[in-house]
Design a protein around this nucleic acid. Structure first.
Lengths: 142, 142
DNA sequence: TCAATAGTTTAGAATTATTATAATGTAGAT
DNA sequence: ATCTACATTATAATAATTCTAAACTATTGA
């Protein structure tokens, strides 16, 4: 979702009603300089802090999934225990810091274009994602 | 874990006691021609079918994680809802069929070596994994 | 060979993440 | 202003995984 703050319009454009909760969530997610990564839990905390009213956990789930479906968010799979979401919806790859559990975006120059030679009959490629797991140089990792 | 069936020895080598359950699990996982992918649920079913005795779900979890830690299994992250494991522990990439939820191994010739240009200070690269999501050519995908 | 002990298995409870439910509330159209 | 369809909410339900504590078993070494 673009920087420009007319979230009401943006929501309407994709057929989502601009409710108070959705607008608030847009502000939390998109009123910032850089894109970022979060879990549902992170987001609930951020919203609680920014808002004086409560927001239901179910609403956060619903809204995150609605935004994902509309292309405003992208889910990133790191491990089975946590869903990370990314406000950067362009095709890009990630580093995952196994010490801090931090996700870091790669930009185009970090990783050469991936060339897929295999072809699966009747199937088209939806996405190609690279995950680079990193960890502290001086410790054993799982 | 190599094809060779002396699982008792193999388990001992890495400091896992060769219990009845672990040996049975080795047989189910490694007494086969090809490596394969499974979820914990799949595995419980497979073991139940092969064994006449019951095995506790907790044991399956424990054992899978013990095997993973010892390098006999690798976890593959596809989405947040399911943990897939792979008996092929060598470095390789995957296709994921979003229609059938099937994981398919890539071999070396399918994807060129990934060249990582970015360097994160004080961190070393533990792994580089590519996931190629594919789906039927004639249907919209999320 | 036979305890001692340290690691393992087990059923079931607990926890965590997520989704479903059904009642209430609200945005947008008339 | 009213109606209707969609949203939100608290709570319950579900699902995946981990924890617990008691019973069991492989190994050690007397």
């Amino acid at each position: 979702m673009p920087k420009n703050c007319n979230f009401i319009e943006k929501l309407r454009e994709v057929g989502l009603r601009p409710t108070k909760q959705r607008i608030k969530m847009c502000e939390v997610l998109y009123n910032r300089e850089k894109t970022f990564h979060f879990t549902i839990n992170d987001l609930v905390k951020m919203i609680s802090e920014k808002m004086n009213e409560k927001i239901s956990l179910a609403t956060v789930y619903n809204t995150v999934h609605a935004f994902e479906k509309k292309g405003y968010l992208k889910e990133i799979s790191i491990d089975s225990h946590k869903s990370y979401f990314d406000t950067n919806t362009s095709a890009h790859h990630h580093f995952f810091d196994e010490d801090t559990h931090e996700l870091i975006d790669c930009d185009e120059s970090d990783i050469d274009k991936i060339n897929i030679r295999k072809n699966i009959t009747g199937k088209k490629i939806n996405s190609v994602e690279v995950l680079v797991r990193v960890a502290s140089d001086n410790q054993t990792q799982k």
